[in-house]
Design a protein around this nucleic acid. Structure first.
Lengths: 201, 201, 201, 201
DNA sequence: GATGAATGAGTCTTCATTCAT
DNA sequence: AATGAATGAAGACTCATTCAT
């Protein structure tokens, strides 16, 4: 086999990562053995290791990939004009997550929980994850600033606090869905709307 | 003398669970070895195993204990008269969690994330955890009903949806704090209040 | 099994080291697998590892033990009164080595060669080995000084050079015996005597 | 064109062997991986394997080459007229070794130790090495016979014993230099001369 | 002929659990 | 009842060698 093309190389990496992803979801990060992944990938141990030098690297890649998948999914929400109001943003964000999850075999929420847990101990993963969530929150903050400007959000609150609140709601939706499984984006949206409404009086 | 023996037994179980708890937090559920726990407990392997027949049992016990610790902590919020409005409830719930976390060596949030992750694979743990969170959500729901009655919450929303939304916000606060570490209960409260305020007009 | 006695512990260590020694001789340091040693020792993997935490440690122990065995064997030669003349010292040193080698299963020379080779790459082993040979050479040097005083060695040479020469002869005897196997202490002694004799005229 | 092909073939073999040699010295025989050699040679795995069918073959070739290099280096000593006396022979032999060693990247002594060790387990290598050292010793023996005839060596000793003694001294110099690194040919020569001198009286 | 990606048996080591004392 | 030494089945990873292209 002469030098493999870049596309083929990328395809192999994807093939391995997919296998890892599926195993991680089914078994958890630690309970998944390299042998599980190797078997699922249809390659040999040596081949897998030539693409990913360690299990940790594979974990990092799996979580990173799912984070950037999430970013891609969320990007459109930041580009909506006029900018979304908080409750609307939350509704569409959770809907996006729920919809993506529905695709067989790829439960973004499960990987998310596994990643959060792993990040408690894994320096590199934590750094990567913090970088991602911080950037994500910053983007939300920009939307919130725009919402304030557009009088769709009360000016007495900092956009940063609003962003933190929204991120909490999104992460919490992920957690609650993964654990209890009976939460619907519409319900969360209704709840927030109700709080907003009750703010009147 | 079964009485004394029982007390001793309970004390021993607590001693072991404490050791496990500390190790789990520091190292994560899987990276913690039984030997770590045995050494931290100051007992012998045989002794530990006579109280907890397996590592899984210890994990279950550790997570269960921290869940019921949380319940104890939260109980007062359900008993406040007149019942708390949603934003106020959220603020006090997150404050309680943050305050408890501050006690060194017992980071409730870390254990929570570890538990969520483990529950993805561990049937029994998942069932226990679901039972807990469901009951917790039910209690929130009751408060929300009372809030509606007290006109502190818009009547057009179901108390159930409000409860789901609040639980999301709380779990999300836990996740965001554990991962990013820069979130304050006051900020979340401010955010929610702002959403509420913007609901006017 | 309650706490094991110190003697039993030492016996176990010896049992493992013996097994390792035999395997190392038969197979070489690297070709010997831990499994070989484990099987030869009659213990389990875990047991072996609880006494020696790594293969490297076992290699170090095996070489170190054989070096100190050599020291014990050689000690009497330093205590002979009057001190031995160079040729006589060499004859008795090589005889000691040859005699010890004859004991079944424990070829000191083979282990020596394996150790020399390993010391080229293994820092710790090299340091240990250098320490040993340096001390050994110092002791020879003292004997040489005494030989000079006793007019059994020409005063024009430094005792240090004499010691280096003798150590070379001894190590060379070990190497030549291990490789060619047809060298006798008496032959070496005869050769040195002849050189000495030819120094006359 | 078999001629050019043959030359190229030889050049490639040399290129590979050089790479192997350098790696073996730096890392030891077993710690060197085929991949190390392949990378150092600048060729592909397939190419290397087409010239040397196995790692063992490469080890054999590396050791054999260094032995015949040594032979080439030593040859002049056997041709000196009048034949060298024992002490003089030893001095020049060790000087030759030391000088060659000085050329960076090619430490003959290190390869020698590695080879001795490997020969303990590798039948073919042992046979080759024995053949070499035996022939070398035979040549020394001839010089010793000539030395006896020239009255430069005491006639009471067999030339064979003298040869064994000299070979020991040479091998011992190699070992001691490789392990302790502080031995000089002049010191060994001085030591032997002193023994010779002390033989008077 | 050459290439280098792929193979997979084999290596060292760990660790939950047991049970002889 | 308690102890802690022993067990041994995995686990992550390596590397000499092959062979499809």
């Amino acid at each position: 086999m002469p030098k493999i093309s870049d596309e083929k190389r990328a395809a192999r990496r994807a093939q391995i990562l997919d296998a890892a992803w599926i195993c991680f979801q089914k078994e958890g990060l630690h309970a998944t053995t390299m042998d599980d992944i190797i078997r699922a990938s249809g390659l040999s141990a040596g081949a897998v290791y030539s693409y990913y030098p360690s299990k940790d690297e594979l974990i990092l890649a799996a979580v990173t990939t799912s984070l950037s998948g999430l970013r891609t999914l969320m990007q459109p929400l930041f580009d909506v004009r006029p900018p979304l109001a908080p409750a609307e943003f939350l509704r569409r964000a959770t809907e996006t997550i729920a919809r993506f999850t529905a695709r067989e075999g790829y439960d973004l929420k499960r990987i998310a929980l596994l990643g959060w847990s792993e990040a408690q101990r894994n320096e590199r993963l934590r750094a990567t994850m913090q970088g991602f969530y911080l950037a994500f929150r910053d983007q939300i903050e920009i939307v919130m600033e725009q919402a304030v400007e557009a009088k769709r959000l009360d000016a007495t609150v900092s956009a940063k606090d609003a962003a933190k609140t929204l991120l909490s709601a999104i992460l919490g939706f992920v957690a609650q869905s993964a654990i209890l499984g009976d939460v619907d984006p519409a319900e969360i949206a209704a709840g927030v709307t109700a709080f907003a409404a009750s703010g009147r009086s």
